[in-house]
């Protein structure tokens, strides 16, 4: 599927970054407003899918030399790992904790271990979705 669509490609370059930023924003917003690991991950992966649609696979993979299977595996490891981590501290499996700190510029900020868990979720979602799409489209 070689598409030579200059307008689409140009717009994509801009749009992908907007989508990526939006995805990251959604991911971090997750604990307090709509968003979170799933949505963040899905939005991020839709950005990648768009890239793969507009450019061909080889080009994108040269630009982003990442094995998305490994991304997914890392995600699962993170999600399970935070649970094990809690056990090491003597709590039940997957216990999350949080604390609020006052950063100089940023103001009152909440630091929660759930963020690590959500990071695992997001990485798994990105890795899996992109792996699925790539597997099929490479198999011509």
């Amino acid at each position: 599927m070689k598409i030579n669509d200059v307008i689409l490609q140009t717009i994509t370059k801009v749009v992908v970054f907007i989508i990526l930023t939006f995805g990251v924003e959604l991911f971090f917003a997750g604990h307090n407003s709509p968003g979170g690991g799933f949505i963040g991950g899905l939005v991020l992966s839709s950005a990648f899918v768009l890239l793969f649609l507009v450019h061909d696979i080889e080009t994108v993979q040269q630009g982003i030399p990442v094995d998305f299977k490994k991304v997914a595996a890392t995600g699962v490891l993170f999600a399970v790992g935070t649970g094990v981590f809690a056990v090491l501290f003597g709590s039940a499996f997957l216990t999350q904790t949080f604390l609020t700190v006052n950063l100089p510029v940023y103001g009152e900020t909440e630091l929660a271990t759930v963020l690590l868990f959500e990071l695992g979720v997001a990485l798994t979602v990105v890795g899996t979705v992109v792996t699925i799409i790539l597997s099929i489209s490479e198999d011509v």
């Binding site: 979170g36 929660a112 868990f117």
Partner: peptide, 24 residues
């Protein structure tokens, strides 16, 4: 949990085990 989004606290804090298995 320190979170304000109830749905997400259920997913990440209250019922994290389900979410973990779902990810798997």
């Amino acid at each position: 949990t320190g979170g304000k989004n109830i749905v997400n606290t259920i997913l990440g804090d209250f019922r994290a085990f389900d979410t973990m298995l779902e990810v798997v």
